[in-house]
């Protein structure tokens, strides 16, 4: 009886490890602007805000536009129908959800990844700003 229990527990742990390994090997899947351009469907693109380029909020139409570089280094113009999200400037990374057409990425949603470092040294501040 005990042998059976040990065997079953070993199988459970081994199976979990096997599944976990396959997760560790692959990275989280994000689309980039390249696929966004080709697939015509709603995708998530992760990247960083480019502060050197024009970033503006058109209060009349309530449209926020900025430039963003995806993880492959491709720069795109992003149009978001809404106000500038909180923490936009200091976010570690930005995730935009939406579709690409006519030379711009039209975001339906913007998420800002909050920092995972709680050190607050001037070095970190510099990096995120």
């Amino acid at each position: 009886m005990n042998v059976k229990i040990i065997l079953a527990v070993v199988v459970i742990i081994a199976a979990m490890w096997f599944g976990y390994e396959s997760f560790v090997e692959t990275n989280v899947e994000y689309s980039n602007f390249g696929t966004a351009e080709s697939v015509q469907k709603k995708v998530q693109v992760k990247g960083t805000w480019v502060q050197e380029r024009e970033t503006k909020f058109d209060a009349d139409r309530s449209v926020f536009t900025f430039y963003m570089v995806d993880e492959d280094g491709r720069l795109e113009h992003v149009v978001f129908d809404g106000a500038k999200p909180n923490n936009f400037e200091i976010a570690d990374a930005i995730v935009v959800k939406g579709k690409y057409h006519d030379g711009s990425f039209y975001a339906e949603d913007i998420l800002t990844k909050c920092p995972s470092k709680y050190e607050g040294t001037s070095e970190t501040v510099q990096k995120t700003l």
Partner: peptide, 20 residues
């Protein structure tokens, strides 16, 4: 392939637990 691995490990784990 990775999905197969997760599925196989799920099947093994739940059946081992059910057996117990």
């Amino acid at each position: 392939m990775d999905e197969y691995r997760v599925l196989i490990s799920y099947i093994l784990a739940i059946n081992a637990a059910s057996y117990l």
